[in-house]
Design a protein around this nucleic acid. Structure first.
Lengths: 265, 265
DNA sequence: AAGTGGTCTAGACCACCAT
DNA sequence: TGGTGGTCTAGACCACTTA
């Protein structure tokens, strides 16, 4: 039998070079997916932008529309892209409620979700210490290991709930200052995205119960030594490039950290 | 134009009744997915069992193979099913490493993952209090609110790391005793599955930092009042039916709770 | 060699959105 | 009305597993 529907040697001409199209073992849709991520990382489609339609992308890559759909489908599942019927496929913004709750898991003890209000406490420039330099994949002690350091308090209904110490590479956020942070967006990640084109799409977190230090105790209005939840987070943009390290302390007396593992069904 | 490939009025005869096939707005593959979950919940395919092949399921439901693949694909994404090329589609077992780590997120501070050893401390029968009865959707104070209560210590390399208080409905686990728990499987969820046909596929967790009580302090070898991580979990089987509530305390001095949000890309 | 899931295609209609 | 993504199908070949 001959496959008339898919003659491997008779593919359209105008296709972009696909990594390992003839050599590697990766399926076509994975290669397409990788190319899409590369274009996103290079800023071909900025945050909020509309991608070309699926038929257009199909002819651009010289593949069938189902192949494009498989690639986009995985990116949508990973929240790297968003589809809206009748509109098109977008690079999602970090400004809407859904995106915010993707990385904000602190809810009231009764289960109520409420958006926090962020207050910048301080912003300074420094050189990353070795530990943080390693986490952010910056050269140890070099001049290019320059970072911004931010301190942050999140309040819900005026009550301070999260106190964070944030480190980001200076090279990725040129000209960052207090005004940029305060007026740049509803959340810090919205600022990264709208002002500097850096989209956070993945985080890794490590949680511990620790004794509060004096600074945290003062902010939260508790005794020094009382238990607080410590969250160490590394945040990544496309291609698993780390762009932020933060250490947060959460007052879990009236709030808690909420996790839903294995939604859908 | 006429759709020759998909004539809506000319579908095969032998199809199972699909919920709302002619009335509801749900797409076909969602209906198929729901039917598959229903069959799983009813025990048509037990844990570890092989499902019929995709062409067989397609003809059984009277749909195209791609529709079956869409339905199974979502269930695989939710870890309700597992596919293996050349073998078939399975109901996954809770015995392999991958499945265990799906619900066990405690890792050593250096990042090393190691399987814990479970020790049953006590098992008793009781009536659920109102709060737990509500969580497990049991009638408050009724005779059918009978539950088993288990206490558990998890050790890694002999070091006690997690101390849990577990409540499960007695009706779902008839004849449960200490020997069943000790010999039933590598983890408690493996026991639920292999001995009682109850597959845990989803959990909801709430995390807090709290002061250790005397019991936890004794087990962990710390001072009473030292911070420990408290995890309250509700575990669900198919169709979001809750089957377990547990409150765990984690000693996060040498270990921490690890989260990877938004894998893939 | 036979059977399974994995990939890929072409093409139809439907549902939604803007104009 | 025209364009978009959403659904659904039929059918081909590929890759893997088991015997």
């Amino acid at each position: 039998m001959i496959n008339l529907a898919n003659p491997p040697a008779t593919r359209p001409q105008g296709r972009e070079a696909l990594q390992g199209a003839l050599l590697g073992p990766d399926p076509l849709y994975k290669q397409v997916k990788h190319q899409l991520v590369r274009s996103l990382a290079e800023g071909e489609w900025k945050a909020g932008a509309l991608l070309p339609s699926e038929p257009r992308l199909a002819s651009r890559f010289g593949v069938g529309i189902s192949t494009i759909r498989a690639a986009i489908g995985e990116l949508v599942a990973a929240r790297v892209l968003a589809r809206r019927q009748g509109k098109g496929t977008f690079v999602p913004l970090h400004d809407d409620r859904l995106s915010i709750y993707q990385f904000f898991h602190v809810v009231r003890n009764d289960g109520t979700k409420q958006l926090p209000v962020s207050e910048l406490v301080s912003l300074s420039r420094a050189k990353a210490d070795d530990e943080v330099a390693d986490l952010l994949r910056l050269p140890r002690g070099a001049a290019s290991a320059q970072v911004f350091r931010l301190r942050n308090v999140l309040r819900v209904s005026g009550v301070p709930v999260v106190y964070s110490d944030i480190v980001i590479p200076a090279t990725l956020f040129p000209g960052l200052n207090e005004a940029t942070v305060r007026k740049g967006g509803t959340t810090l990640y919205a600022v990264y995205q709208s002002r500097f084109g850096v989209s956070i799409i993945r985080t890794i977190e490590r949680l511990r119960a620790v004794k509060s230090d004096t600074a945290a105790a003062r902010i939260f209005g508790m005794r020094s030594g009382d238990p607080v939840l410590e969250v160490r987070r590394i945040a990544y943009t496309f291609n698993d490039v780390p762009v932020e390290f933060r250490r947060s302390r959460v007052d879990t007396r009236q709030f808690h950290y909420f996790l839903d593992l294995g939604r859908d069904t």
